[in-house]
Design a protein around this nucleic acid. Sequence first.
DNA 1: TTCTGCAATTAGACTAAGTCTAAAAGCAGA
DNA 2: TCTGCTTTTAGACTTAGTCTAATTGCAGAA
Lengths: 132, 132
Amino acid sequence: MNSVEELLTSHGVKPTPQRVVIAEYVMNTCCHPTADQILQSVADRLPVSLSRATVYNTLNTLVQSGVIREVFTEPGPARYDANLDRHHHFVDTKTGKIFDIPWQEVPQLPQELAGKYKVHGCQITFFGQMED
Amino acid sequence: MNSVEELLTSHGVKPTPQRVVIAEYVMNTCCHPTADQILQSVADRLPVSLSRATVYNTLNTLVQSGVIREVFTEPGPARYDANLDRHHHFVDTKTGKIFDIPWQEVPQLPQELAGKYKVHGCQITFFGQMED
DNA sequence: TTCTGCAATTAGACTAAGTCTAAAAGCAGA
DNA sequence: TCTGCTTTTAGACTTAGTCTAATTGCAGAA
């Protein structure tokens, strides 16, 4: 049993071949792929055909069980992220690429706002350009 | 000439009847409406029929000219926001409602990250629940 | 081993959000 | 009034994602 299978099992997800290759792909790419990119890239790693519905089902299952995260930074399709450490995102407005920003790069934000908004989580998206 | 017309003109946007009622609607609602909600609500304020394409064209024009902002906090349709002051958003996870959080409620964030990401802008979305 | 039944997968239909296109309408200036 | 540009329109189209009903694949029971 390889480590991806163990990871899925430990999160209560039965490690079917489809789920394993999808999870593996998301974990081994740093590019925050979309569902469609995942389908394209993963399809020929399986002996059977892989359906679009399975990709979406699997991604939703993995998100719900906490194996990966869904990222919405901009218009367009959802992107997926296997970095489970708390972090934020930086969108390079020139290339569209998304980079992870470690949690500790950003100062602690308030846990309550304007005396009435109780904060449970937050997501920061930075826009800008990478220096060369 | 009313104030909405002046505002559009001052942003270089010709104030057609369609644009005026759409801008007016977005400015007078605090609920961050979607394109579809805008179409539903605004259609009968005009003597002619209002096309979906016009709503999207107008919203894109208004966003590009800086009259309103487009907000993506969660999966689903884009939402529009006429609050031009710099601010962030709070999503009430119970009701789905979006509230504006004034810029000064949140500490200043770094202008450069990890020594290579030059920040031009950022968007913070808080998730949580309003206190009763 | 075979049977049973649930969970996962599949293809394809369907829905929702938004864009594109070609024609018509509106309007500013000559 | 005419001309030409801009805006609007209806509806086709595209993209992202969900739903459905049938099939497949297993795990556990007999």
